[in-house]
Amino acid sequence: MELFSDQFNGYLWQMAQGAYVTLQLFAAGFSLALVIGVLVGIITLSKNIVIQAFWKVYSSIIMGVPSLLIIFLLYYGGSAMLSGIFGTDRSFDVTPFGAGVAALTIVYACYIAELVHGAVMNLPKGQFEACSALAIRPIAAWRHVILPQLTRLALPGLINIWMIVLKDTPLVSLAGLNDLVANAKIAAGATKEPFIFFIAASLFFIAFSALTLRLSARLETRFNRGIAEVKA
């Protein structure tokens, strides 16, 4: 097949659209997982035994099952589940995109919650005590003292999860989502040019990783404010 023929350009355009879908899926999945993961992480710090027991069982199930199965479960079983919850008289359309966002959120919120737990354990107890002694109320203490330090402690782990979520997005193509990898596969099959299209898709992921590393380096400098000087 000729490079930059109309047909070729058509497939490239399709891949660009697929890349846009991948980015949307990633952005929605990661940001929801981050918000819910941090909230759940804070709530499950509670010493309440019911919360503890529930969290132990729930998180080991979610983290023990392959993400792909959760995507399938939500895609093929999603409308039955929603009807079960909201009543059978209404029908629910579950799109591959919706199921994908939900699955990524559910799975990675768990990992992020665990990350929050680890970071809180690593925070000296004296930080909480100093806030209490200064009569700073819990919500303000979390916002101004605890979370900024947790962010620093959890940042390397968060960057890891960020990369893993990105690399998990193609799984949703197996539920029929036309993301970057799905469209690369279509183009490769139709043109019998696997290298061009699969390498193009890989370049997208590599470029995204490179951007991520630059972003994380910036964030690290920012959150190490006050701590970096010790090493200098």
């Binding site: 004296g126 930080q127 005590e129 100093a130 002694a133 900024p148 330090q149 006050g226």
Partner: peptide, 15 residues
């Protein structure tokens, strides 16, 4: 009551 601790417990991310 103000309190002073053995380990200072200053907030490391603030000046």
């Amino acid at each position: 009551c103000g309190m002073v601790f053995q380990q200072f417990n200053l907030f490391p991310h603030l000046t």
